[in-house]
Design a protein around this nucleic acid. Structure first.
Length: 291
DNA sequence: AATAATGTCAACCGCCTAGAC
DNA sequence: GGTCTAGGCGGTTGACATTAT
């Protein structure tokens, strides 16, 4: 823990971890005299430390009212709620948690809660659902699936492994489909607006009802169904090839900035907004697509 | 058992603000 | 109003602990 041991700065003041006897001197002095002046305290207490270091040691570690040990579920929820409102105002958050220091809360946030939120798909700063990670992860998987190695592998693996490889390719195809659907205009638009509460429900539904099943159409079939029918196209102009969906997530939509939403997608978005759920056009997933 | 990778958290650094002069 | 100083805060570091390989 802490810094380089027994080091001292140019003024000769000691830095680094505190020794038990230093703690003892600090505690003893504060019990007798209080800490009205941190700058004067070290000299008076017989410590070769700067006042700042003494204050930090006292407030973050030696203070008698400090609560030690794991954060309770209640404390965790309090921190999450307060952080959503206050942001990284650790001292303000700490003032709502008796016995906890701002430093402790900050550490707990950085080592636990932040990661937890990210894993749950939330932006730790805004506390809102994030889609960039989903796009990013998908695109990375897409890139992997596009590696020539997978194709080469198919020609090399023994017959008994072909089924496993086909399953892998099937999974990749599902990812491609999901990525493809996510980049449809109505979704692309919502991804630029983190305030859209429908993002998560759309993604959840996609994942739940499509990605996690084995009943997905082949990409080729999907592409044909998507673009051979002119009555209600999702895209307002020439659709991108499926290969175009393989670009990194941080790239703009494959359709570029001049993307224009057509009537169908607009009404679809309205439907999503109104119902919180998605009803995909039947022609995209008709029975003939499921072998 | 040895080594590497990852997690934890006390402590430091630098900046900001308020108050005194 | 300008300067100095102390106190406070948030970000970051790095030694140690734990877990994975």
């Amino acid at each position: 823990m802490g810094r380089s041991p027994l080091s001292a700065d140019e003024t000769g003041l000691k830095k680094g971890p505190w020794l038990p006897e230093e703690d003892g001197k600090l505690i003893s002095y504060i019990h007798k005299h209080g800490h009205s002046s941190w700058s004067a305290l070290p000299k008076l207490a017989g410590l070769n430390r700067c006042g700042k270091s003494c204050r930090l040691r006292w407030t973050n570690y030696l203070r008698p009212d400090i609560k030690r040990g794991k954060f309770s579920q209640e404390e965790e929820e309090t921190i999450l709620n307060l952080h959503a409102v206050l942001g990284n105002k650790w001292s303000m958050i700490a003032s709502h948690l008796p016995g906890r220091t701002d430093n402790e809360i900050k550490n707990f946030w950085n080592t636990h809660l932040k990661k937890k939120l990210i894993q749950m798909g939330f932006d730790p700063m805004t506390h809102r659902p994030r889609t960039d990670d989903i796009f990013s992860s998908l695109s990375q998987l897409m890139s992997l699936s596009n590696l020539r190695g997978l194709v080469d592998l198919q020609q090399q693996v023994p017959f008994e492994d072909q089924q496993a490889l086909q399953n892998l390719q099937g999974e990749m195809a599902k990812l491609q489909l999901l990525n493809y659907l996510l980049q449809a205009p109505h979704l692309a638009m919502s991804s630029s607006n983190n305030n859209n509460p429908n993002e998560l429900s759309i993604l959840n539904l996609l994942i739940k009802e499509n990605y996690n099943t084995n009943n997905l159409p082949s990409l080729k079939t999907l592409e044909e169904n998507l673009f051979s029918q002119n009555n209600s196209p999702i895209w307002s102009h020439e659709p991108p090839s499926l290969n175009q969906t393989m670009m990194p997530s941080h790239d703009p939509s494959p359709l570029g900035d001049d993307l224009v939403l057509n009537q169908a997608s607009s009404s679809h978005e309205q439907e999503v907004a109104a119902t919180g759920s998605v009803d995909w056009p039947d022609h995209l997933f008709d029975d003939s697509m499921f072998p």
